[in-house]
Nucleic acid binder design. Structure first.
Lengths: 104, 104
DNA sequence: AACGTATATACGGTGCAAGGTATATAAGGT
DNA sequence: ACCTTATATACCTTGCACCGTATATACGTT
């Protein structure tokens, strides 16, 4: 979780990820669409790749980058735990209120 | 989204958040349970508070910190967009395969 | 083989975020 | 009033992450 969060918690990288949501892109495309320097793009993609957020496939001398599902699924699952705990607390609250109601 | 991610993308803060998932806690409790210095806890809580991840209520000379739902709901909604785009791509692939099937 | 294109990496510089120590603030207890 | 407890903040230091520039690598084209 931490690695994924760290990878996404950087403005430029988040922009890259948001771009890749619509479709896979080559490094040069990302560079031009987001107006970044080429090394900047490569380095951010490296971080994203090492965090498992993206993967690349070689196409001639270019590399096509796309998102991996796993980290997003994991984040969703992680959040699910928080959603559930609130639900539980609400359930407990409701139960409590009901009990109070019974007493009156 | 970025502010939430930035707030969570720090090991100690993530630990604090995970601790607060189970129940609200006072600063001193966090300090002892996670074996941190008191200023460290206060400063991380400040970041979390300013990012809207936690909120505090004053109880005598102590402060009770608890998670806010909003950022987690927002993250879940954000992830939903990614889930949907993969679904859509899969749908497109299925449609394509079906079409191929029709042609044969 | 030579050149151009696409991408990765190495290296140096810089700013910012995190930690530690000391201190301020505020509320309780005696 | 005084002392203790609880938390926040100020100040300083340090490490690390990001940026820019230069260069390496690899593939394609002629």
């Amino acid at each position: 979780m931490l690695t994924t969060l760290t990878a996404l918690a950087e403005p430029t990288r988040l922009r890259i990820v948001e771009l890749l949501q619509s479709s896979p892109r080559y490094v040069g495309e990302i560079e031009k669409l987001l107006v970044l320097s080429q090394p900047q793009v490569s380095k951010h993609l490296r971080v994203l790749r090492e965090a498992g957020v993206v993967e690349s496939t070689v196409v001639a001398q270019r590399r096509l980058y796309e998102l991996r599902r796993q980290p997003f699924q994991e984040m969703a699952a992680w959040l699910e735990g928080y959603r559930r705990s609130w639900e539980d607390h609400l359930d407990a609250l409701e139960a409590h209120l009901e009990k109070i109601g019974d007493d009156q």
